[in-house]
Design a binder for these strands. Sequence first.
RNA 1: GGAGAUGUACUCAAGUGGUGAAGAGGUUCCCCUGCUAAGGGAAUAGGUCGGGAAACCGGCGCGGAGGUUCAAAUCCUCUCAUCUCCGCCA
Length: 420
Amino acid sequence: MQDIRNLRENFEATKAALAKRGGEYNLEQFAEIDKRRKELLQKSEEMKARQNAASKQIPLLKKEGKSTDALMAEMKELSEAVKALEPDVRAIDEELESFLMGLPNTPHPSTPEGQTDADNLEIRKWGEPTAFGFEPQPHWDLGEALGMLDPAAAAKIAGARFMLFRGLGARLERAIASFMLDTHSSRGYTEVAPPFLAHRRSMTGTGQLPKFEEDMFHISDTDFFLIPTAEVPVTNIHREEILDAAQLPIKYCAYSPSFRKEGGSAGRDTRGLIRLHQFDKVEIVKFVHPDNSYAELESLTADAEHILQLLKLPYRCVQLCAGDLGVAGAKTYDLEVWMPSYNRYVEISSCTNFEAYQARRANIRFKEKDGKPAFAHTLNGSGLAVGRTAAAIIENYQQADGSIKVPDVLVPYMGVEFIR
RNA sequence: GGAGAUGUACUCAAGUGGUGAAGAGGUUCCCCUGCUAAGGGAAUAGGUCGGGAAACCGGCGCGGAGGUUCAAAUCCUCUCAUCUCCGCCA
C-alpha cells in the first residue's frame, strides 16, 4: 500500500516513479477523494463532539433535577444525522482504501527502465555455463530414465502440472530442502514451519489480495487459500505488531510447498519441474530497520547466492526492470541458474525489498526507545526454489553415461555419490 | 463436532447504561537513607485519524464487526482467539 502522506506531499515525484512501471493508475482522482473524505470526516467529527459534550451534561442536569427533554430531543436528531452520514463516510473510506491498495509500490531509483524481462539488468555472473563433452539431456528425460520423476503418476492423481518424485528423486527434494534450511539456520535465520493455508487477511497483508485472487487456489466453503509462497505465512508472523527496534533485524527461513494456478501460462514449460501447480521452496524473510533495508537486500541476496555457490551451479544475478517488478516490490534481484535444456539462465530465486509497502498493509511496525512507532521494512527471497534446484542439479551434474553426480554438499543428505 | 468459561494497559485486575475506564504489581523519575533493602512521592490506556507553525484541540479505541439507546466496557446479534470438559483422530 502506498503511504497516503507521501502521496499528499510528493504527488508529482510518486506519479513519475509509478509511470516507470507503465500502466494506468488514474492518480489524478486522489486529491479529489482525499479532499472529499476530509470534509466528510470533519463534519461527522464535529457532530460527534457535540454528542459527547451533551452526554456529559445530561447526567448533571438530571442530578440537579432539571428537565433533559429538550436536550435529549436535540440529541436524537443529531444522532440520526450522524447515522445518516455514516454510509457516506464508510463509502469514501473504502474508495480511498481501494485506491491506495490498487497502487503498486514506488520502484527504487536504481530500477532500470523497461517493459519485459528482456530489459532486466545483468548485475553479475558466477561460474560459466556448463560444458559437456556429449549431448546433454533435459532433466525430465533424465529424471524419468533414472526413476526419479513420475509425471504420469502425478497426472493420474491430480492432472497436469503436478509431479510425483520417486526413489532418489524424492530423496533429492528432501535433501535439497534440508541442506538449504541447515545452511540458512547456521547463518542467523530462525527456521519456522508455518501453516500452508492462510486466510484472506494474511493474503491481503503481503499483497496477493485483492488483486491476484485468480492466481491462487481457494478452498471452497472456507476463508482459506493455499499459500503461493511461504512469504505469506512468514511475513504475517508479525502482522499487527509493534516490534522493539532492538529486535531488528528479524530473520526467518522456512520450507513450504507453494501452490499456484499458473493460469496465464498454458503451454509454457509443460515438461519437467519448471512450472508446476505445487512446488517446494525454501524462503528467507527479513524484518528490518528502514535505514538499512538496502544493505539487508544485498546480504539477503548473497545468502541465496551462497546456496548456489555451495552447489556449484552457474548462475547470474539480474535486477528487474520497472515493467517486470512485482507490484509490492521496490527493488528486486532475480537469481537465474544455468539450465542446459533451455540453453539459458532460468529464474530460481527472487529477492525483494518491499520497503514499507507490505508493512503498511499488514501493520508491522517497530519502535525505538522513546520513539514513535514506524513501519518496518520487509524483505524476502527464495533460498531457493527446490524443484528448480533439483532440475538444475540433474542437468548440470549429468554424466556421459546418463548418471548424475551428487553435489558434494548434498552427499551427506543423499547417502550416495551418484544417481544411476 | 458438542458443552461451558474467558477476552479491559507491560502483567494481574475492578468496573451490568451516564461527568475524566478503579486498584495493585512492574517500569521510569524524584525524595529519604553512609551504601543496599525497606519506605515516601510523582508519572505511566497504548495506538491511530483529522485540524493547527506550535502549544494544543477534537474523533475513534475495553478481542473484532454490527445493532439497541439521547448516551454502551456494560444490553442484544454475529464473529475471532484462548482455556476446561466430552467426542473423534494422526
